[in-house]
Amino acid sequence: MEPTEKDIAFKQLQKENRILKKKLERSEADRAKLEQTKNSKESLLKQVIVELQESQGILEQKSAALEQAIETLTLAQSKLVESEKMAALGTLVAGVAHEINTPVGTGVTLASTLADETEILVAEVARGGLTRAQFNDYLDTAQEVTALLLSNLNRASELVHSFKQVAVDQTHLEQRHFNLKNYCEEVLISLSPTLKRTSHTLTITGDADLYIESYPGAFAQVITNLVTNSLMHAYPLGKQAGHLTLDISQQRESVLLSFKDDGCGIPANNMEKIFEPFFTTARNRGGTGLGLQIVYNIVTQTLKGKVDVTSEVNQGTCFEISLPTNTGAIPKND
């Protein structure tokens, strides 16, 4: 017998009823599950927010600590720069002390010679046996000794004067009017003991009549650093007799100091780094990497000039410092 339309409709209804009942059962279970998932999510997100806040706190602390560290480092760096400057001054003091020793020592010898001669003379006078010839001898000696004494003491006083100038100039940067070449020579006198221990020579050439209105202490620093660098870095084999030259000239609108050595030169890939603070190829020999940084700062900031370097490996290095005549250094030809 064929199922009637009613039969089919009834079967369909029964099926739908079964499905609905099953779905109801299932949805209860699923709802509980979803609720749990939702609660878990809420708790998870809360916890993550707490973590985020914590790590934000940690980050803030860290950045504060970093700032502090940077400050400390900046301070340490400026202290190092200061002490490198003092070291340069130290080199000068040692040199000057050595220089002064010679005339003062000679002076002491001469003075004691004069004292001895005078004592003999006084004794002869007291004995009443002083001869004309003896007296004349004494006068000759006294004249000679006092002349020598005078020249030695003059030399010492000159040295003290020039050192005082350099030292004062370096400790208080004051502007004054001075002869550039003479001043450079004075600086080099203080460096000469260091130089004498080597077989290198240093010559100053150029315009002897060039006066400028500027900061002499700054020049002393720059020259000292350049010379010590050449001595320290340019002749690593130690044997060569190097030629260092400092030339002073006046260009149209600037003063040019050109310092050269004929040493080993600077490799191309170091060239852009040498002015950076702490770049040194001689850390094991006490290099600080601050010398050229100081040169750079003094030239560009105090003297408002420019510094250029050219170098060729095995040929030598040349530092050219040019100072504008309108600011900082004002040349005057007397």
């Binding site: 749990q36 998932t37 878990s40 999510k41 708790s43 998870l44 916890q47 993550v48």
Partner: peptide, 13 residues
Amino acid sequence: HYYLNEFATDVAY
């Protein structure tokens, strides 16, 4: 427990 505040695991996480 730290994240879900329940002493049980949850497969949805």
